[in-house]
Design a protein around this nucleic acid. Structure first.
Lengths: 260, 260
DNA sequence: ACTTATAATACCAATAAAATACCATTCACC
DNA sequence: GGTGAATGGTATTTTATTGGTATTATAAGT
């Protein structure tokens, strides 16, 4: 603890970045310390009282700065334990979530992506859909399927299923499904994704313009609202030869224990 | 805040890293004693009560330090017998479990996984290996490949490539590649992973006992040292029908930070 | 004059750290 | 083979440190 504060305050003088209220100066300063690598994910911040004494402000002022950083997901607090820099995994997950947005992901690779509707409509739910979306046989399910392409090269097939209660008019979707959901207040906050390899059947292979039996990436994603309710179930099939899925892993440190 | 330096100094002339909780200071002291050769693998530590009395802390405090070292694989305890320094080969780096997650992952599904060597040796590097590992045509590359199976069902093929500088004797590997690397001080801290679908060629399909052309998950992983240097490059091929890859995503919040 | 944001003070609650007392196992010795 | 002194293992309690909250004072903006 004392050690950390020493490190923490070693380079910078006790003079805060100027301008604005104290707690904002302090917030910016902590952010800088994290971004510049002086404090790393998993590290503990000095206790609020230590920080306050060192910078010579009241503890509540420190707290106000810290709380904003907690709200932003930069810091994590544990009552009775301490304040810690949030693990990078959250940020990795955030970057993974951008896979959610197919268009963004491809645009990052310099490709212009267009979509072509395959189907939009209300149907009787399949057993799978009833099970996952929690529907009864008398409910209706909204299905949206489209083909993603760059130029004339098909890249992926997306088939989304939602309760008709959430998406009563599938034809009303013009832009992104997620934007549409967001406008109606149904915003997914969490998703479980399963990736596996599969050989493409005749229909999918035809749509993707590859030989039947070619390898494809099969990604199933179930999205949840903050309430925990399932909002959407999507099965995507990517051509194995044009799409890959990149992720960064951070290998943990075994050095243990509770950080003071 | 208490500091044990003086107490240690009284009996042993060891400079103790000061600061932090007592049990952490003690833990660091024991680690140093082992690393500096004052205690050797196989040797017994003083009993917990003796240590406690010598350092003048409670036995539970000693125990907390010892338990962490046991958890890290540095020490081994035998009820009624004593505490001993673990032989080097037994030390398990928990941190690497995320990398060698294959076994854990399968174990979690109730499967017992075994491995079968396909190849271990030094070769002339392929262009890919030269590029990724930073080798010249006159360097040699160490290749390790093995088949993972449950019972008699093959699950995956792993092919790792390393610089011969890092792994001069591939045949010396008996257990885990990562344990071996750790012993020689080459410890990966970061990895980039690429997942894609691919149709299996004749050789791989034969090893995995599936028809040629079946879909497989192709995972390429490049591991980095803390210095940023590439240490290892692994291509794994999983059977598409027996392995899937599940991940949880947290969908980011687009709302910005504070607006003063 | 009133509201708002900021900052300080004092106190509450949860957790970790450390100490105490007691239980279970091993193993040398009789 | 029994027996006891050694060992590690566990439960409970006390204390210190941490974040959490309510209240109050002050300065700036309207």
């Amino acid at each position: 603890m004392a050690d950390l504060s020493e490190r923490f305050f070693a380079d910078q003088s006790v003079v805060l970045p100027s301008g604005g209220p104290l707690y904002l100066q302090l917030k910016r300063w902590i952010e800088d310390a994290i971004h510049s690598g002086q404090i790393n994910p998993g590290d503990a911040l000095p206790s609020e009282r230590d920080l306050a004494q060192k910078v010579d402000v009241s503890r509540v002022t420190v707290r106000k700065a810290v709380l904003q950083l907690v709200r932003d997901g930069i810091l994590v607090q544990r009552h009775g334990s301490g304040t810690f820099v949030a693990p990078r995994t959250q940020r990795v997950e955030q970057s993974l979530s951008q896979l959610t947005s197919f268009t963004d992901d491809m645009a990052r690779r310099g490709m212009v992506v267009r979509a072509q509707w395959l189907d939009r409509g209300l149907y009787l739910p399949s057993p799978d859909e009833m099970l996952i979306l929690g529907l009864t046989a008398s409910d209706r399910v909204a299905r949206i399927s489209r083909l993603r392409l760059t130029g004339d090269t098909p890249l992926a097939i997306e088939r989304a299923s939602l309760s008709s209660e959430i998406l009563p008019e599938p034809l009303a979707i013009v832009d992104s499904l997620y934007k549409h959901l967001d406008k109606s207040g149904n915003r997914p906050v969490r998703a479980i994704q399963r990736i596996r390899a599969a050989n493409l059947g005749a229909e999918d292979a035809g749509l993707l313009q590859v030989p039947e039996g070619s390898a494809g990436l099969n990604i199933e994603r179930t999205s949840y609202l903050a309430s925990g309710r399932v909002i959407e179930f999507t099965r995507s099939i990517y051509r194995g030869d044009t799409y890959d899925f990149v992720a960064e892993l951070r290998l943990g440190d075994s050095s243990g224990g509770t950080k003071p």
